[in-house]
């Protein structure tokens, strides 16, 4: 009896997952089904659109709905970047979003000057760009020996 119930429960969960998979594409329209203003905002993605996942399409539709509220500069930046961004590895996009969140947590004066910071960073020699590893170089004389003494103990 318990096995039957478990089987029925598993079937129902699979059914709901299948139903969800069927519902999402309905909510994620094809390129020809987009409104003209959405097609115009997402024009760089026209070629790739039908190969995108339903979740990606829904995300881009959301972005296209924000598009008309942006300034002309922001609109041109979005359009110039969206194709490369859409073609990026999902993992790279996830890491970039994590860095964006981290940068938003910086003090306001630094956050507002990120563009200048980026330029400063790019002008640095390659060795200057890499963050100093705190564990690789002892800060005070004797620190390294202290570390070895701890290991021996």
């Amino acid at each position: 009896m318990a096995a039957t119930r478990l089987l029925i429960l598993i079937c129902c969960l699979l059914l709901s997952a299948a139903a969800d998979a069927r519902i999402t594409p309905v909510l994620a329209p094809g390129w020809s089904e987009l409104a003209p203003h959405q097609q115009q905002a997402l024009a760089p993605l026209a070629e790739d659109w039908d190969g995108m996942s339903a979740v990606s399409r829904l995300k881009w539709i959301g972005i296209s709905n924000r598009y008309e509220h942006l300034s002309a500069d922001e609109q041109s930046r979005i359009q110039a970047r969206m194709r490369d961004w859409a073609r990026l590895d999902p993992d790279a996009r996830r890491r970039a979003r994590d860095r964006y969140r981290a940068m938003q947590a910086l003090p306001a004066e630094r956050r507002n000057n990120l563009h200048e910071e980026w330029e400063r960073y790019q002008n640095l020699p390659p060795e200057g760009r890499r963050p100093q590893d705190a564990t690789s170089a002892p800060r005070r004389p004797g620190d390294a020996l202290q570390g070895q003494a701890n290991i021996i103990r």
């Binding site: 972005i63 961004w85 970039a96 990120l114």
Partner: peptide
């Protein structure tokens, strides 16, 4: 959607992220 829109419209290039 919010993060992607903000990043793509940002003055900071995507390479920075």
């Amino acid at each position: 959607e919010e993060i992607d829109a903000a990043m793509l419209a940002d003055e900071l290039p995507i390479d920075a992220y």
